[in-house]
Design a protein around this nucleic acid. Structure first.
Lengths: 355, 355
DNA sequence: CTGAAAGCGCTTACAG
DNA sequence: CTGAAAGCGCTTACAG
C-alpha cells in the first residue's frame, strides 16, 4: 500500500539508505551532501516518483509562501478584479513588483469573508480600494505585512491613495477654463442596483457621490465651481454603477442644458459620449466629457477621452513595495494628473480656444 | 517572552483551562463544544490576540489550500498575464469558476521555474498557452489536478484548445468571398525580438508563423486560399511580437499590393489599421483587416475590427471546471467564431457587396 | 559530512 | 461532550 500512495521524503531516505536529514539536505542544502550520496538519493527520488518536499510541510517549518495577496474591493469577486479596467491597472502595478521580487500573486475575493483572509497562504496582503477599515483586522491579527489603498488608515499602517479632491478640482477647472458653465455630474454607485437621480437643491446628502473617495471628487468639483461663482448644488447628479448603460441616458435627460459632463468613472464617461453621439450631439463641439481613471479604453474611443489619471499603476507599485520593504509604515498621497484628449473643448459659443 | 511572540492554539487552551483538542474544536467543529466552554475559549482568543489556526499547520493536517493556480505562458511574468488582453480573457474564464467554487486564484510566472511549480500552494494548476509539454511534469509528479491549454496533451490529460486551423480558414474564406486576391500575413513572434520578413517563395519553413497554434492558423489560411487557386507561398509574411509597432509598417511595405491583411494577433491588426490610415488608406475600402482573438479593444477601434473569436473565456471556464471536477481526463476542442465588424469589406473594384 | 531526535502548530481518531 | 496522544511531512540544531 505504501507503493501506491504518495512517497514521502522518509521513503526516499530509506530507499537510498541514508538518514532523513541527509535526504532533506539534498533538497535544501545540496552542497552539504557528498555527490555520491546525492546521486544515490536522486536515484531513489526518480525510482519512487517523489515530487520534492511537500510544500505545506516545508512551509510550516521554513515559513515563506512566496506569494502576496490582493484583497478585492467589497462586493468584488475574483473575476471582477480582472474585468474592472481601473482595478486592473492597479493590479498591474502590484504584479510588476511581484516579478521583480520573484513572488506569485494571489487574488482574494470580497474581504467580507474574513475566514479567507485569516487562512490565506500569503506573505503579505494588499487591500484594494478599502471602504471599511474593519476589513484589515484579520491581517493585523495575523501580524502579516499589509497595505491599504484609497484610504489613510492612520499612523502605523501602510497606505497609499490619490488626491481625489485635487483630481476633481482639476477636471472641473479644465472645463470652466474652456468656458463651460452648465454641467452634469455622474457619481459612483458602489453597490449593484439602479441608478439614482439627485435633482439640484441645497443640502443634498454627501453620500450622493458614492464612497468617501467619490465625495472627495465632488468636493473638488465644488471648489472649482465656487471659484467661478457656481454652486455644485445647482447641478443635476446621477449616481450609477459603472456598467449601468441606462444611467448615461438618464443623466443626459436630466442635464439637458449641460455643455459639459464630469464623470467619476471612465466607463460611464465613455457611455455618455456614445449616447450623446447617438442623439446627434457632437463631442466635444456640443458636449465636453471628462472621466476619472486613465483606463486603456479611454485612449481608443472616438474622440479619445479626457480623464483624470488617478495613477492606479503607481498605487499598486507603491503598495506592493510597502509590504516587501521592512520599513516603518507610512501613508503616501499621490497627485492625480489631468490628461487632456479630444473629448473636451471650448463651450459652444464661448470665446475660448483649445490651448 | 511567550507574551510577545505569536500565540498558539495551545496557549489559548491553557489560558482557557481546556485541552488542546477542545480549543481546536472551537474552530473546526464549534457545534461539538458546549457554549459555555466555547465562550471561555473565545475570551482567551480575544485576550491573547490569537489570530486563528495557523494556515500552514492547518493545511498540513487538513490538506486543502482553497486556491487554484494559473501558470503563465513561457517567458511571461505575472504582469504580462494582466497586460495581454487575450490571456486576460482566458483568466476571466478561470476566475468565474473560482468565484463559483469559492476559490482564490494564484498567478504563477513562467513555467521555466519548475521549483515554483513544485512548491506552489494550490489545489490544482492550469497551464496557460502551453508550448512545451515538459512544463507539466512537476504537476504530474505532485499528483495535482491540472489542465493544459492550447495543446492536446494526449490521453489521460485534461486539455482544452481552439480549432486554430478552422479559425484561420474562416478568416481567409471571409476575405476571399469578398473578392480579395492579394494578401499580406502577420505572423506571431512568441519570443521578444525584431520582426522577421519572410518573402514569398516555396518551401518556407513552417516556423515562419510562430508556435504550433500559429502554424495551424497558417494552414487554415492556406486551405482557403487553395480553394480559390491561390498559394500561401506567394504571400509575404512578417512575423512579429504583438507589441512591435514597426512591424505593421514593414508588412504594409512588403505587401503593398495587398487589399487584405490576415493577422494572427489582434493587437497587430489594430496597429496595421492605424498605420494604413496614417498612410491615407481607407479601411476597409482600400484595405481589409482581420485579426485573431476577440479582445475588448477590437470593438473600440475605428472601424471596429473583424476578428476570429478564439473563445478564450470559455477556454478558461472549461479548464477550471476540469480541475475541480473529479472526472476522467478529456481533451476538449472548441470551434472558433468569425465576428464580422467594419474593418473588412469588398475588395476594391470587385463586384462583391457586404452580406 | 552524517544520523538520531526534537518540534513546527495544528487535527483527528480514540478512549473516557 | 471532553482530554491525552499520535502524527501530518518536513527542517534544523546537535552530537558524532
Amino acid at each position: 500500500m505504501t507503493k501506491t500512495s504518495k512517497p514521502r521524503l522518509a521513503d526516499v531516505a530509506r530507499s537510498a539508505g541514508v538518514s532523513l536529514g541527509t535526504a532533506s539536505n539534498v533538497f535544501c542544502y545540496p552542497a552539504k551532501v557528498r555527490p555520491e550520496l546525492r546521486e544515490r538519493v536522486m536515484a531513489s527520488v526518480e525510482l519512487l516518483g517523489y515530487s520534492g518536499p511537500d510544500p505545506a510541510a516545508r512551509l510550516m517549518r521554513a515559513g515563506k509562501v512566496n506569494s502576496i495577496g490582493i484583497v478585492a474591493p467589497a462586493r468584488f469577486g475574483v473575476v471582477d478584479t480582472l474585468r474592472n479596467s481601473s482595478f486592473l491597472l492597479f493590479m498591474q502595478g502590484v504584479a510588476e513588483v511581484c516579478d521583480a521580487k520573484g513572488s506569485n500573486l494571489v487574488i482574494l475575493p470580497d474581504p467580507a469573508d474574513t475566514g479567507a483572509i485569516h487562512s490565506a497562504l500569503v506573505d503579505g496582503l494588499i487591500f484594494g480600494q478599502v471602504e471599511q477599515l474593519a476589513v484589515i483586522e484579520p491581517a493585523r491579527l495575523r501580524r502579516l505585512p499589509f497595505a491599504v489603498v484609497d484610504v489613510d488608515a492612520g499612523p502605523g499602517i501602510n497606505s497609499v491613495r490619490v488626491d481625489a479632491y485635487g483630481g476633481g478640482y482639476a477636471a472641473a477647472r479644465h472645463l470652466l477654463d474652456q468656458g463651460h458653465r452648465k454641467f452634469g455630474i455622474m457619481g459612483f454607485l458602489r453597490e449593484f442596483g439602479l441608478a439614482r437621480y439627485h435633482p439640484p437643491g441645497p443640502a443634498r446628502d454627501s453620500s450622493i457621490a458614492g464612497m468617501p473617495i467619490d465625495q472627495e471628487k465632488l468636493r473638488g468639483y465644488a471648489a472649482a465651481l465656487a471659484e467661478n461663482g457656481l454652486s455644485v448644488d445647482d447641478i443635476p447628479i446621477v449616481q450609477s454603477h459603472p456598467w449601468d448603460k441606462a444611467a448615461a441616458a438618464a443623466l443626459l435627460d436630466r442635464a439637458h442644458e449641460a455643455t459639459a459632463i464630469l464623470s467619476m468613472s471612465a466607463m460611464q464617461a465613455i457611455e455618455i459620449m456614445t449616447v450623446a453621439q447617438h442623439r446627434g450631439l457632437a463631442v466635444p463641439e456640443d458636449l465636453s466629457v471628462v472621466g476619472f481613471n486613465d483606463i486603456p479604453e479611454a485612449a481608443l474611443t472616438t474622440p479619445p477621452l479626457t480623464v483624470v489619471d488617478a495613477r492606479n499603476t503607481e498605487k499598486g507599485q507603491i503598495a506592493a513595495e510597502m509590504i516587501f520593504r521592512q520599513a516603518p509604515a507610512r501613508a503616501e498621497l499621490l497627485s492625480p494628473r489631468l490628461i487632456v484628449r479630444a473629448s473636451s473643448g471650448p463651450a459652444p459659443g464661448s470665446e475660448n480656444r483649445p490651448q
